[in-house]
């Protein structure tokens, strides 16, 4: 190696180390130093969540590369039993959760009093008003609803909601019932709000197969049993990763996206660790981690997940007021229209 090249190498090395230090400092400055220290002392966190288990594990792994001193214990349940458990534990004064993430905002609102109202993420004001549920719950994963298509069987990709009304698709499309949870309800809400009252009726005339959750729908499309169906992106991404011929299409009308909501409990044994986790999860860095795992962030400036083929790139953030008010009546109406017994 020549002297010049050694100089160059040294310079490059110094520059890299310097940049890395600067970058670490810059990132560290994003988070409150006192909170980091307090969280370090607590060293642990109990995180109740209704999100997908694999996503949670990957997310916590990313958090731990940043803050390795906080051991996160995940307690994962589907949303209804999670809410029931939190309510029962709180009633018995034995709530063990420091942090909770729910996928249904209505449920979250009912339990509002057991969560800390003194905490807000540093960038709370950056989030759109529609995603601000209350002063206790903060947006975490943006669950985007797409059209999942079997690309081995469908040559022309849908671009608009009306494309799913093609008579050739009759009996070969599917959807998750809106009563199954917050994300499927958001998708149904968007269809009716954007396309008008009769879109549900027209789609019902297509005799879609209805599913209680997104995974069997994903399986039906991936196997070719169905040609396409409405599904959350986080359910499509793992199937795509296997190499299956499926695509996730964001339609021109917008990509219905409802946020999962996170809150720190009032009785948290590790409040600083819980707050640090939420600080990180709601930050640009945390939202980028979510995006990598298939969530569509509602934080402005974030890119869309790579698993999704998007026409318009427009995220339709579910307005919480409508989400909450319309849910009981419209879900019952939908069930009747589609012959779903619930």
């Amino acid at each position: 190696m020549s002297r010049n090249s050694r100089m160059t190498f040294k310079t490059a090395l110094s520059a890299t180390i310097g940049a890395a230090l600067l970058s670490t400092t810059a990132l560290a400055q994003n988070f409150d130093a006192q909170r980091i220290e307090a969280a370090r002392k607590e060293g642990a966190l109990t995180f109740y969540s209704a999100n997908l288990p694999e996503l949670l594990q990957a997310l916590v792994a990313k958090f731990n590369t940043r803050f390795p001193f906080v051991k996160v214990e995940i307690v994962r349940l589907a949303n209804p039993p999670l809410i029931a458990r939190v309510e029962a534990e709180a009633t018995a004064n034995r709530l063990t959760a420091d942090l909770m993430e729910t996928t249904d905002l209505n449920d979250a609102k009912k339990l509002e009093n057991i969560f800390d109202d003194a905490y807000a993420p540093p960038n709370a004001k950056d989030y759109p008003a529609a995603a601000q549920i209350s002063k206790r719950f903060w947006p975490m994963c943006g669950a985007a609803y797409v059209v999942m298509v079997n690309t081995a069987l469908v040559k022309t990709m849908p671009t608009k909601l009306d494309d799913l009304l093609d008579p050739a698709l009759k009996g070969k499309v599917g959807t998750v019932v809106p009563g199954a949870g917050g994300t499927s309800w958001s998708a149904a809400l968007m269809q009716r709000v954007v396309k008008g009252e009769d879109y549900w009726k027209k789609f019902a005339d297509q005799k879609p197969l209805t599913f209680q959750s997104s995974v069997p729908l994903g399986t039906a499309v991936a196997s070719g049993e169905l040609l396409m169906g409405f599904a959350p992106l986080i359910a499509v991404a793992p199937i795509q990763k296997q190499g299956a011929p499926v695509a996730a299409i964001g339609l021109d009308e917008g990509i219905p996206t409802s946020v999962t909501a996170g809150a720190v409990t009032k009785t948290a044994k590790n409040p600083n660790a819980a707050r640090l986790f939420l600080d990180w999860a709601t930050s640009a860095e945390g939202q980028a981690a979510y995006t990598e795992l298939g969530c569509a962030s509602v934080l402005p400036g974030q890119s869309l997940p790579t698993a999704m083929k998007v026409n318009s790139g427009k995220v339709w953030v579910t307005p919480f007021a409508e989400y909450a008010d319309r849910q009981p009546g419209w879900v019952a109406e939908w069930n009747k229209m589609y012959g779903v017994n619930q």
Partner: peptide, 11 residues
């Protein structure tokens, strides 16, 4: 199961 795990649950 649907009543118990439904949204909202009917315990």
């Amino acid at each position: 199961y649907t009543l118990f795990q439904g949204n909202p649950p009917d315990h």
